[in-house]
Design a protein around this nucleic acid. Structure first.
Lengths: 343, 343
DNA sequence: GTGAAAGCGCTAACAA
DNA sequence: TTGTTAGCGCTTTCAC
């Protein structure tokens, strides 16, 4: 049975079910006003013929093709892969095609490229991830084009129906408390790239947890990295070479936390005995370094699903019924321990 | 200028260039038998109107839509992300759409799912990556469906025009020699998942390099893992607890090499002083662990490009002009050192 | 070298 | 509740 040679069409189904093609179309798209009996008849024919609607014909005929795009520019394969799989999984289930569009462009051409891409691909909606979802010029452009959108983990101010976030703030608050409860008082923080708005939320959570515990965030204990391992190394060196160095360091992502671990190793500072380290994201790497990193696990797959779900709801004018608050959770591993008075 | 509201069609271009739509179609598809002058005229109109052909209409009208699929089932985001970007980049340039299809299915339903997917999506060709590209039932199914395919890093025997490989064997040979030249004689090897044929090539390269140097691969020095970090830990424990333990370990991928590093740390075996470790793949993680791993860098992006290139050549019956042998290269970092007589 | 007309498989608008 | 007809924007066939 060669699939390629036998494209069964809507007409074939109509013939077999002895109805018009429009009725078949109604059934396919679950439109109202079709008799229960007719539906059954048509479905039987569809099953029998193993019919699959031709997506091109549908897209051509429809004013709004069932196609969305995932646009990203992430340096982190782990992040985007999981979000992508969530998006794909949801869209596949609901008959939407997804066009994957990685951007490898500097900011200057990014906007023009995106415009061109949208035009060429004729998508009906767009999902973006950080750092693109934080890029105001791009988002403005989408608005100008009247393009429905969902921003994943964006720090920009948009309507709730247009974004999917996780509780970065609360999770940071919690992981900070994890350290505080273990007796740490001098806790260093390595901020992420200032242009990544969501990563900056992580500092807010840290800050408030410290405040609540009446611990001060001293200036010299706060460093700012760029989310990369290399930038983390620089910050870690400064932090760990401090005269009065912190007993714990919270890095805004795992890469930078891994850098802290590496620098500590080089300086023969024992983790977790003499230094506790926590990261954020739960990349697989966190389990491969020694010691394994305490971190925060983000539900990336779920966030991808939720983004697709919301976008499709927006496109079809239905109301989103999914979770609104997709919770990250603390993962305690081996890089944190109680503070020892006498180091 | 709202893009959505003004879909310029082939008819618009025809009107402006004062030719028929068929002529415009000829120009778009660079068909022969159009006067040079007419081409110029049409191109000017296309430029002026900023016309983009509607891919759906093209796909609907064409017998062979310009759409391919990338099917994968990789546990490694790093791997697939880079291959994918190569594929996307090439296809975008040549006007092909790519459907990304991650498989999350057990072997039983995989075949049926793939059939369904191919039928639904109506792609003209398929690219697969390991371990799917090593899965004979799947590949047979593609053949049955007369579906043009490219297998990335497959160990299966198919025509050269249907696969894209890198020189796993040579690279393994080279990295083994890197160890041998540094005086290592007892070298342990952790094999990859036996069903990943290309990973097994890495053992062949190791084996031959050892033979050439008149070093024996002793039975107890050869372990078999499953490519995962966890499996690597088990193998590493056995290897490093050997009465006469190896002075160097070559793991068939980075995850397992990282596991060796971790286990060595736990056993207080200093790397690289007392133990040299090498991996394979050059995942970003290799630079984040201590010490940074000596490994082999695979040109994944290029492999993705080449796969797309070959597939499109097959689809369009043109001859592939790209590189046929995409070379991996040795990356020396800090996990390897000269063998010291007295440990 | 160029064009007119017929479809690709589906949906939308309107009838019945 | 169901069917008819006219497109969607393009390629293909065949005529000129």
């Amino acid at each position: 049975m060669n699939i390629k040679k036998s494209p069964v069409t809507i007409q074939d189904v109509a013939n077999r079910a002895k109805v018009s093609i429009k009725t078949v179309s109604r059934v396919i798209n679950s439109e109202p006003n079709v008799a229960e009996k007719t539906i059954k008849k048509v479905e039987k024919a569809i099953d029998f013929l193993d019919y699959q609607p031709n997506a091109f014909a549908q897209s051509l005929a429809r004013s709004q093709p069932k196609i969305i795009a995932l646009i990203y520019n992430t340096p982190s394969p782990n992040y985007i892969t999981h979000v992508m799989e969530g998006v794909l999984s949801y869209c596949y289930k609901f008959g939407y095609e997804v066009i994957i569009h990685p951007c490898r462009f500097d900011d200057a051409s990014l906007i023009d490229d995106t415009k061109l891409f949208i035009k060429k691909s004729r998508v009906s909606g767009i999902i973006t991830t950080p750092p693109l979802s934080d890029f105001p010029e791009l988002i403005n452009q989408l608005d100008k084009l009247d393009m429905p959108k969902i921003l994943v983990s964006s720090g920009l101010v948009v309507d709730a129906s247009e974004k999917v976030n996780t509780n970065d703030y609360e999770a940071s608050f919690e992981i900070t408390n994890h350290l505080i409860r273990r007796g740490h008082k001098r806790i260093g923080f390595i901020k992420g790239n200032p242009s990544h708005l969501c990563v900056n939320q992580r500092f807010a959570g840290f800050f408030d947890a410290m405040k609540e515990a009446n611990l001060v965030c001293e200036g010299e204990l706060i460093e700012t990295g760029l989310n990369s391992f290399a930038s983390g190394e620089i910050c870690a060196k400064r932090l760990l070479n401090l005269k009065n160095r912190p007993s714990a360091v919270f890095a805004a992502n795992d890469e930078m936390a891994a850098a802290v671990v590496k620098v500590a190793n080089q300086l023969s500072i024992d983790i977790p005995q003499s230094l506790s380290v926590v990261g954020f994201d739960d990349t697989p790497m966190t389990q491969m370094i020694s010691p394994a990193l305490t971190t925060v696990h983000q539900p990336l797959f779920k966030m991808g699903e939720a983004a697709a779900n919301k976008l499709i709801c927006n496109l079809e004018n239905t109301s989103y019924e999914g979770e609104d608050d997709i919770k990250s959770r603390l993962v305690v591993r081996d890089s944190t321990a109680h503070f020892l008075k006498s180091i």
